[in-house]
């Protein structure tokens, strides 16, 4: 299991959020989540310009085994999507916290919503029960 980078925040539903220097938020799924889903074969991303709301489903990742909704960790406008995943969804399996990012949000209400997310220690504790 990959180590959890210290600069990430997490949803209980296993999405990660990274606040970039520019104040934008990059979103992906955790290494734990990709492991549980297994080989990813299809990613349905939002469109650039879409408005997303924290806690709402805004993307889908599908593995051979299951389809899983992706919930936005923060509210705002989608300003970039990882188009490379269309042809290579397995990038998420290989590098969930890096090249396997899903999309970037320009947040509306970052300070308040960030409070609601889990820090790496709290997330590690959450998933501990699932590890086999």
């Amino acid at each position: 299991m990959q180590e959890i980078p210290g600069d990430l925040k997490f949803n209980k539903s296993h999405e990660w959020a990274r606040v970039e220097d520019a104040g934008t938020v990059t979103v992906g799924i955790s290494d734990h989540a990709q492991g549980a889903l297994g080989d990813l074969v299809y990613v349905e991303l939002p469109s650039v310009g879409d408005t997303v709301k924290a806690g709402n489903a805004c993307a889908v990742v599908e593995s051979v085994k299951a389809a899983s909704d992706i919930y936005a960790p923060v509210s705002g406008e989608v300003i970039a999507i990882n188009e490379a995943l269309t042809d290579k969804p397995e990038t998420i399996n290989e590098d969930a916290y890096g090249d396997g990012w899903l999309f970037v949000i320009k947040p509306d209400n970052l300070a308040d919503e960030l409070e609601e997310l889990l820090d790496p220690d709290a997330y590690a504790e959450l998933i501990e029960g699932d590890e086999s």
């Binding site: 492991g35 074969v41 051979v64 085994k65 086999s132």
Partner: peptide, 19 residues
């Protein structure tokens, strides 16, 4: 192996990548 319940049995789903 990632184990899973299958018909009441604890069985391997995959050992890494099922593909």
């Amino acid at each position: 192996a990632r184990m899973v319940d299958f018909g009441g049995w604890d069985m391997p789903l995959n050992y890494g990548s099922q593909i």
